[in-house]
Every structure is written in structure tokens, then in C-alpha cells.
Amino acid sequence: MPFWATYVFLYLPIVVLVLMSFNSGKSVYTYEGFSLKWYGELAGDERIREGLVNTLIVAAGSTVIATVLGTLLAVGLARHTRSKLLDALALMPAVLPDLVLAIGLLVFYGMIQMTLGLHSVILAHGLFSMAFVAAVVRTRLTNADTSLEEASRDLGAGPVSTFMRITLPQLLPGIVAGALLAFTLSLDEFVIAFFTVGNSDQTLPIVIYSMIRFGVTPKINALAAILLLVSFTAVIAGQRLTKIGETRAQD
């Protein structure tokens, strides 16, 4: 099998998807001519706009939780304990199937009789993003030089001020990469949001889900094309950022 066949398999559906978003006809199957009308329809769709705003709220909220807790957790695990059990626990949200996390949280929210909404999704996304942030920050910690931290301790600085002045600046590229990862994961997350959002609010992936179930229309293609553009830009920007971080760390 030729090497590029994998790439054709991965990109052909995406190319067709984007191409059909410019279709002037009503069908996604037969191309009739170039038009941007579906993008216009998209801009006027109230549900999609609401979904987008909700998704951004959830992604921002959960990223803050995941970045703060995940960074602290990574430092704690790398520097203050040797427990393999805690390591495994911290990774669990990333390893467990999303469906299991989702129903566990649904059962829990039901038990404490919490009203479902965006806040319950934020808490849920915070949980699984935290595992990813902790893992990313952790790899930087294991590679980082500990002599500066030790010097700071020997000179009488406490663990907190050592963290603020020495560890945190060293970790910054890792933390930024982790936060970006958390944000992107939350933007696209469907299963956990679907179970924990309740009936009133919908995130963008849930809106997309119900649109697809309703039927195929070039409007979904237009939305897909925009989302593709956003995530491709984010990934490439993230890639650049990590590269810059790495060269700086090497200097």
C-alpha cells in the first residue's frame, strides 16, 4: 500500500466536505455552482450562535479549572510524592471511556440534586482536561533541571515562593500548551456534555449532533469548514508555540 494512501483516506472526506459547503444548490451530493449563501445562512442561525457562545463559556471555564488544578497537581506529583497510585488516579479521567465518566457524573449530579446546565458541564470538562494538563506539565517537570529549585530551597525559600519564582516561570510553555489542549478538547467534546448539560442549554457539538440527526444540509458543511479552519489554525499555532518553548528551554 502506498504511503500517501493513508493521507488520502484521512483528507478526502474533509476536502469533499469543504467543497460542498460552497455549493449553490440545496444538496450536499451534487455540486451546482459556487456560492457563499450557506455561510450567510449560518451567520443568521440563532441556535448555532447560542451554541457557540455556550461552548466558549464552557471551554473558558473548564480551561481555567483544569490549568490551575492540573499544574498544581503535576508539581505535587513530580516533587512531593512518589505514590504510583496517585499518578494513576490523576490520569484516570483521560483513560476512562468518556461515556463512563459521563454517566458517573450524571448519576452524581442526580444524587446531590444539582440542576444541570453549563456549570455542570464546566465541572465535568474541568475534570478530564485537568488530567491532560497535568500530563503535559508533568513531562516538562521530569525534563526540567531541579538544581535551581534546590538552590532556592537551600537559600531558605519556602515551597510556595520557590514554586512562584522558580518552577512556574520554567513551566510556563508547558502550562500554555496544556491550557491550549484543554481548551481545544472542551470545544470539541460531545459525549460528556451531552449527558451533563440537561435540557435548557446546548453546546455547539450538541447542536451539530441534532442537526446531523435531522438531515444533511450544506449548512452543516459550512459550519464544518469554519470549525476545520479554526482547529487547524489552533493546532499549527500550538505546534509553533511548543517549538518556541523548547528552543527557549534549551537556551
Partner: peptide, 9 residues
């Protein structure tokens, strides 16, 4: 890194 549902669609 693109939306999972979009890829299924």
C-alpha cells in the same frame, strides 16, 4: 483535532 461529529458527518 477537528470536531468528531463533523468527521462522522
Amino acid at each position: 483535532w477537528t470536531n468528531f461529529l463533523i468527521r462522522v458527518y
